[in-house]
Each structure stands twice: as structure tokens, then as C-alpha cells.
């Protein structure tokens, strides 16, 4: 799973306990409004643009189901699989554009060529699982001017990439940005995502209302008061990510850096996922959307990354012939 290795800060856990003490109650709306206000400030958009969701995947699914039936859905390959599966259920037609090796670059010319007639464009940026920032806000803004195009940008890894289209939602009714607190706020277990929605999305998703679990609501409220702690953690993860990547590259292992909290390795070790699992290390096998051998490795604590590096190298050396 893709998570942060540290538990939430004490302040966040203390706040969550308030929610636990009142577990017999639904989340009250004034607190939900406060949460939207704080998310609005954090995202630098108005609170009225915030749509809360129990996980960003749920909001993505809702939006895709709503907008895809009479549209051509365009997305990436690889991409976040639950979104693709949602689109497959309802989309009038679907086209996925391959992000090819070695740099996973999106061919914008092809993308523009594909946008014809009513379309829904869904892109994760940075892309999951390549971790590549595939499109800039300027490029998104250019696309948003096309007629009858709805755009959803999933920014689940925004805090690691620093690239966002949030500021465009005030100006473009046909844009929604989705995000999550799962990863950067150390709150994967709380399962909360949110959307920053342009007017058209706000209108069509007006009936989408989630009573967040009370514990989650209090936890996120406190987390938003402790953004500095989260940002420090993001910096640690980024440093560790780059350090680990460097070590693998130094060993001549095919590894790819990302703008997210993971690296990719193209492994030639047979059954690498199972072999690592036997050693107590869990990595994500992404060969269902990538050429064989690709694994996604989430950055952990420094000591965990060290163990992974040593174990991987040992497996690799047991296998490879040298020149």
C-alpha cells in the first residue's frame, strides 16, 4: 500500500479521540463547514468549491459515472485502476494514451487530437504508477478552453510534486481537482478525499454529500492546523526517495525517479514481489499496466529503505551474471 510510514502527530490523534467519544453522533454540519473552510485556505480556493468525500476514489467514481455516459472518456495508460474501471462501466467510449518508457512523457499532440466532440478527460498528475508529472497547469488551461470538455485532474500526490491546477477552478467551470489526505497527512486509515470543483462540477455534484465519520473529521481538522509537521515529512520522504534512487542507479539497476512518494524499479529478478514478501518487504507489482518486471516501491523510514536496498541487492546478485 502507498502510505506514509509515520503515525499521525499527537495533536491529530488527540483530536480524533474527541470524535471517538462522540461516536454515537453523526458529524455535525458546522464542523463540516469548518473543515471545508480550512481545506479552502489550505488549497487557496474558496470553501464553496470544496466537495468532501470518503476517499478521493469515491468522488472520482461519482464524477466519472456522472459525466462519462454520453462522452468519450480519455485517460492515461497506466493510470489509477479504480478510475479506469469506473469509466469502463459507464463511458460511451474510452481511449487511453500510453505513457511510454523511458520518461513516461505524455504526447500532448495526440491528446489534443483525441479531444473531439463531448469528452471527459481524467488524468492523475503526478501519474500513478509512473509518478511522472505529465501535464503543467498552463497546458491544462489551454485544454480547458476546448468546447464541451470536462476535465478531472487527480492530484493525490500534489504535496510531493508541488504542481497544482487548483487556482484554475475559479476560472474554469469544466475543471475539478481531486486530492486526498491519506498520504501526506499520515491519515490513510481515516479515508478522506476532497474535490476542488469548478461551477459545472459543483452543480452536477450538488447531491453528492458524504457525512464523514466523526473521527475522520476531527482528525483532519487537527491535521490542517499542523501542516508544518506534514510538510517536514514530505521533505524527508523526498530526500529519502532521491537518495534511494541514487543508490539503485549507482548499482546499475534500472530505476526511475518520480514526483511522488515512491520510486519504480524494473526488476529482472524472477518473482521479485514474492521473494521480497518472504523477506517481510511489501512492494506493489504494477506489471498489470507496465512491461514485465516493474514494481512500485513506497518510500519508508530511512532504516526501512536501507533494509529494502540490501535485500533487493542480495536477490539481484544471486541472479545476475556479470561481464
Amino acid at each position: 500500500m502507498n502510505e506514509l510510514p509515520w503515525p499521525p502527530p499527537k495533536e491529530v490523534l488527540d483530536s480524533a479521540r474527541i470524535g471517538l467519544d462522540e461516536f454515537n453522533r453523526y458529524a455535525d454540519e458546522s464542523k463540516l463547514d469548518e473543515l471545508k473552510y480550512r481545506l479552502g485556505r489550505y488549497s487557496r480556493t474558496g470553501e464553496d468549491r470544496i466537495i468532501l468525500s470518503a476517499g478521493s476514489d469515491l468522488l472520482l467514481r461519482e464524477a466519472v459515472h456522472l459525466f462519462s455516459p454520453l462522452r468519450k472518456t480519455i485517460t492515461l495508460c497506466p493510470s489509477f485502476l479504480p478510475t479506469i474501471n469506473s469509466a469502463r462501466q459507464t463511458a460511451g467510449s474510452m481511449t487511453r494514451i500510453r505513457l511510454p518508457l523511458p520518461d513516461f512523457r505524455l504526447d500532448l499532440e495526440i491528446l489534443e487530437r483525441e479531444i473531439k466532440g463531448p469528452c471527459l478527460l481524467v488524468m492523475d498528475n503526478p501519474n500513478n504508477p509512473t509518478g511522472k508529472t505529465v501535464i503543467s497547469p498552463t497546458e491544462v488551461e489551454k485544454l480547458l478552453q476546448k468546447q464541451d470538455l470536462m476535465v478531472i485532474i487527480d492530484e493525490a500526490y500534489y504535496e510531493f510534486s508541488g504542481v497544482t491546477c487548483a487556482e484554475l477552478v475559479d476560472r474554469y467551470e469544466n475543471l475539478m481537482v481531486t486530492r486526498t489526505v491519506d498520504k501526506v497527512f499520515s491519515l490513510a486509515g481515516a479515508r478522506m478525499g476532497y474535490g476542488l470543483a469548478g461551477d459545472l462540477f459543483l452543480k452536477e455534484l450538488s447531491s453528492f454529500f458524504i457525512y464523514l465519520p466523526r473521527v475522520t473529521m476531527y482528525a483532519v481538522l487537527a491535521a490542517l492546523e499542523n501542516v508544518d509537521i506534514m510538510l517536514e515529512r514530505v521533505e524527508i520522504v523526498k530526500e529519502e526517495r532521491d537518495r534511494l534512487l541514487e543508490r539503485f542507479l549507482h548499482e546499475g539497476i534500472e530505476a526511475y525517479g518520480t514526483s511522488a512518494n515512491f520510486i519504480l524499479i524494473r526488476s529482472s529478478i524472477p518473482d521479485v514481489v514474492d521473494e521480497l514478501k518472504k523477506r517481510g518487504i511489501l512492494v506493489r507489482d504494477i506489471s498489470d499496466q507496465m512491461p514485465p518486471g516493474f514494481i512500485r516501491v513506497t518510500i519508508g523510514k530511512r532504516e526501512e529503505n536501507g533494509i529494502f536496498f540490501r535485500e533487493y541487492l542480495q536477490l539481484s546478485r544471486n541472479r545476475s551474471p556479470s561481464h
Partner: peptide, 16 residues
Amino acid sequence: GMREVIVGFNERIILE
């Protein structure tokens, strides 16, 4: 060049 491959009913993947 870039070509589409039909992978489902009205579903395509574009690749080089």
C-alpha cells in the same frame, strides 16, 4: 507512429 488498438467494446489504447 501512434496507433490505436481496440481492447474492448469502443475502448482503445493508443501507443507508438
